[in-house]
Nucleic acid binder design. Structure first.
Length: 728
RNA sequence: GAGCGACUAGCUCAUUUGGUAGAGCGACUCUUUGACGUAGAGUAGGUGACAGGUUCGAUUCCUGUGUCGCUCACCA
């Protein structure tokens, strides 16, 4: 046949990709049901499912997404070609707090503020804003070539998802695994919400360390502004320096705003070696102090309000922000001769908001907490039973450590953008009751009037349910077919935030692990190995690269040499090298088609020469067998490189060069053998490359003739003599 | 303080049941009507962090040391 004239020019990704994606999309083959209907895939075929980590509906594609989409698409395309009923379910995330921050900035620009706005109005505004922007990210996902089933696309705020989340909340409540309680929470005074422990950063700071005279004691503190209400003096029971004092003893002393009565408390939590070995406590604003106060049933008093300002207990300092108050308080203490000494350059860690770096002010709040220990124990059992595979393996240890020492999870957020918590709070005793059906009118404890809980769930509480929620647990037929899912592929960074919680909640609700394998990739760094950030100006936009070098080149660059769990330095040079590779494949096709115009490939051809029969065919078939095994082991970085080398170093540089000599010769049998080999092998190459470089291979496939089906649903090439590779 | 990981060619990284180390990029030399110059043929470059141990043999397994990174942690 005549060769396609497109082949006479270098491969043009720009003119190819959108057209090919449209072909795929219109074929319907992203949807496993269509594949079965059209007889592409056997109706009894095993299912293979990946739930895409829901992307921020309001965001745009960054390099990390590029990696997610590439790896998952490689897995999915491979499995589809292997004949699985393959589902890749795409999702969008409302990304609660993240999106609210973005929207708040927008409001700020417009001279508005979320505080004081009607909650429903604000929610509606953010919803419109998010949905308007969501097309953007979807188009970008398509640009990467993602063969996900858009007919099953889910959004984390879809009504059925919300219902699932409500059901889970109710079950947790009924099973006594969620409770509302006064606990110390991490509070950001700028964002006016609490956080879970995972959302807090530790930051090293250098401050003054103040030694203050507290009656007969010297106490050390870096935060004098919290000390107004301190009326307990705590020491270790074994500390001989303070053995003359007894637990419960009271001492009258002069403090910041006048005389007070302090009570001695003895507790092992005090570190004898630290400071002076004696401390006062501020239970409302410190976790350890809270613990001590709880243990001994001590009074707790709020000193700092939600905005970071001092309350009336601070007397003359009331209403002043803590940052401004500190030097003033020290001044006063000095005047009262209550400062023993000030140590400068005191290095300590403070906890800050991961978003705005504001110092976190612990506060006692009445919020919803999930009891994590019972959930974690069940998961630990499964992990120890090897029922879940971690790639790379060391994430298993990390997970086990975390689960062994897990803390209760605060799921209440004081923001509007999210799923509201279906619960009633007693106006009198603050008792919380799950109320999914909105029927509760009086407190089950004291019978008083109740009010609606105004908080929303932590985004991760709902996304932690994503595998079963997105598949429609438990009624949707998809849930039965595609759950548990096969692989969860996501960033190692969110192993605790997301992966571990999905496992816990999935197991709790469905009694099954939500996935069999966890595949975690590392960060995508810039060419110098630095984390990308807007402030550094080193952010690489994947779409700029795909535009410049083609999506296939970008995908190869993301995957070659990128072992799971390891960060990847993304350099433009590397992408360019794979652009050249795509072109190489293109030109190989041109050579092969140009030199085989007079024949048709015959799959059953047997009259091969010795070289083809004994060396060349076994060589490519061995390669296919090897890489098939490695694909099943998720070693894409190896497979991509192996195919690359076969194509370039063997097929192009040796076999094609040899062929030129053969074609100039006179041995007709040898020529025919070689032509059949070239055509047959080219087809195999195109197939095994397809998961990695789907666009250029699909385009070439359409030129190979006699191919009615799209390459994306062709069968993965097996060596017939070797039988099927390991099936898993 | 604890856990985890890394340490291999100038740079980025591979190398799994242990058998004399590989690739890409970069560098240098040569090739220019050849399927492809988005190319081809070559060259240089590594006592595999260090020290011990197991072994016929260790980059690979074990122990220790160092450096770097990440994560976790209530040090007032």
């Amino acid at each position: 046949m005549e060769i396609n004239e497109k082949l006479l020019k270098p491969y043009n990704a720009k003119d190819t990709e959108d057209r090919i994606y449209k072909l795929w999309e219109e074929s319907g083959f992203f949807n496993p049901d269509v594949c079965v209907e059209k007889g592409i895939i056997d109706k009894d075929a095993k299912p293979f499912t990946i739930i895409m980590p829901p992307t921020n509906a309001n965001g745009s594609l960054h390099a990390g997404h590029g990696l997610v989409m590439t790896i998952e698409d490689i897995i999915i395309r491979y499995k589809r070609m292997r004949g699985y009923k393959t589902l890749w379910l795409p999702g969008l995330d409302h990304a609660g707090f993240e999106t609210q921050i973005v929207y708040e900035k927008k409001l700020e620009k417009e001279g508005r503020s979320r505080f004081g706005m009607d909650k429903r109005e604000l929610y509606q505004e953010i919803l419109d804003f998010t949905l308007n922007n969501s097309k953007n990210i979807k188009d970008q996902i398509k640009k990467i070539g993602a063969s996900c089933d858009w007919t099953r696309e889910k959004f984390t705020l879809d009504p059925d998802i919300v219902q699932t989340v409500y059901k889970t909340f109710k079950k947790l409540y009924t099973d006594d695994l969620v409770y509302r309680g006064e606990r110390i929470v991490s509070w950001c005074s700028k964002h006016q919400t609490s956080f879970s422990d995972l959302e807090i950063l530790d930051e090293e700071r250098i401050d003054n360390f103040y030694y203050l005279k507290y009656g007969p004691f010297i106490i050390a503190t870096s935060r004098p502004e919290t000390k107004f209400g301190d009326k307990y003096i705590v020491m270790h029971p074994d500390d001989t320096r303070y053995s003359t004092y007894t637990h419960g003893q009271t001492i009258d002393l002069e403090w910041i705003n006048g005389p007070i009565t302090a009570t001695v408390i003895k507790d092992e939590l005090v570190d004898m070696k630290f400071g002076t070995g004696v401390m006062t406590i501020t239970p409302w604003h410190d976790a350890t102090d809270f613990e001590i106060a709880e243990k001994h049933k001590l009074d707790k008093e709020q000193i700092i309000d939600e905005m970071g300002k001092l309350l009336p207990i601070a007397g003359e300092f009331a209403g002043i922000h803590i940052n401004k108050a500190r030097p003033l308080i020290i001044e006063k203490l000095k005047n009262k001769n209550l400062v023993e000494k000030i140590e400068e350059n005191y290095k300590h860690t403070v906890r800050t908001c991961y978003k705005c770096n504001t110092i976190i002010e612990p506060q006692i709040k009445n919020q919803w907490f999930v009891k994590m220990k019972p959930l974690a124990e069940k998961v630990l059992e499964k992990i120890n039973n090897e029922e879940i595979t971690y790639i790379p393996e060391h994430y298993k240890k990390i997970t086990i450590n975390w689960l062994n020492d897990i803390k209760d999870w605060n799921i209440s957020r004081q923001i509007v953008w999210g799923i509201s918590i279906p619960a009633k709070i007693c106006k009198n005793c603050a008792h919380g009751m799950a109320d999914v059906d909105n029927t509760i009118t009086t407190c089950s404890k004291c019978g008083s009037e109740v009010k609606q809980d105004n908080d929303t769930f932590d985004t991760w509480f709902s996304s932690g349910q994503w595998p079963f929620a997105s598949l429609g647990y438990p009624d949707n037929i998809d849930f039965k077919n595609f759950y548990p899912t096969s692989v969860m592929e996501t960033a190692g960074e969110i192993i605790f935030f997301w992966v571990s919680r999905m496992i816990m909640l999935g197991l709790y609700i469905t009694d099954k692990l939500p996935f069999k394998t966890v595949y975690l990739h590392g960060l995508v760094l810039d060419a110098k190995g630095l984390k990308m950030s807007k402030s550094k100006g080193n952010v690489i936009d994947p779409l700029v690269l795909t535009e410049k070098y083609g999506t296939d080149a970008f995908r190869m660059g993301m995957v070659v040499g990128n072992t799971p769990g390891t960060s990847l330095s993304l350099s433009e040079d590397k992408i360019r090298a794979y652009r050249n590779f795509a072109n190489k494949v293109w030109n190989i096709t041109r050579f092969v088609l140009d030199n085989t115009k007079d024949i048709k490939h015959d799959d059953n051809f047997t009259n091969y020469s010795q070289l083809e029969k004994e060396k060349l065919i076994p060589e490519i078939d061995n390669l296919i067998r090897e890489i098939t095994k490695e694909m099943d082991e998720y070693k894409f970085y190896l497979v991509a490189e192996k195919i690359y080398h076969y194509v370039w170093d063997r097929f192009a540089d040796v076999i094609i060069e040899e062929s030129k000599v053969i074609f100039e010769g006179t041995n007709e049998q040898e020529k025919e053998s070689r032509k059949q080999f070239l055509l047959g092998t080219l087809a195999k190459i195109i197939k095994i490359l397809h998961p990695f470089t789907p666009f250029v291979t699909e385009e070439i496939w359409s030129m190979l003739g006699n191919n009615k089906k799209l390459l994306m649903v062709e069968k993965w090439p097996f060596d017939k003599t070797q039988g099927k590779p390991n099936d898993n």
